[in-house]
Simulated scan of single mutants.
Amino acid sequence: MNDIHDMTEAMKAEFLAAFRAQFGYGEMTATANDDAAAMLKAAAWAWRASREAVVVELPSFDGYKDHIVRELQAAFSGAIEAQGLKVAQ
């Protein structure tokens, strides 16, 4: 679960872009170098841990009809979770 391959595509793309910007190499280099691979794995673990620590609370949607509230909550929850974040229950 500490691997970039366990990330959603959006999360993986964002992580790799940030990793490349900071360290100047990405997944291809890490596959050929054990030290680079270890660094990539450690960074992926930290990235995921930072994302899992964030819990987003959805608004109440007061005044909306129940079926609209359910649709909004489902859409917002899906978008939030696709970024690797949690939605408060």
Rank of each mutant, 00 (worst) to 15 (best):
V55D: 09
A10M: 06
K86H: 14
L72Q: 02
W47N: 09
F61H: 01
K41G: 08
A13E: 12
A46E: 07
A43Q: 09
T29C: 01
F19S: 01
G78M: 08
E9W: 06
E81I: 15
V56N: 12
A17F: 08
A75D: 07
Y25S: 09
D35P: 00
N2P: 03
D66H: 05
M1P: 02
L58G: 12
R51N: 12
A88P: 06
E9A: 14
W47D: 13
W45G: 07
V87C: 02
Q89L: 11
H67T: 12
A43M: 04
K65G: 05
Q22K: 15
V55K: 04
F23M: 12
P59R: 05
G26W: 15
F61D: 04
D35C: 04
W47K: 09
I80E: 10
N33P: 00
A49I: 06
G78D: 11
E57W: 00
G78V: 02
A53H: 07
L85G: 02
G84M: 04
T31S: 11
A44R: 13
D6K: 05
D66A: 14
E71N: 10
A79E: 05
F15T: 08
I4Y: 13
A74F: 07
A88Y: 03
D6N: 09
N2Q: 09
A74Y: 06
A44E: 08
S50R: 15
A88F: 01
F76N: 04
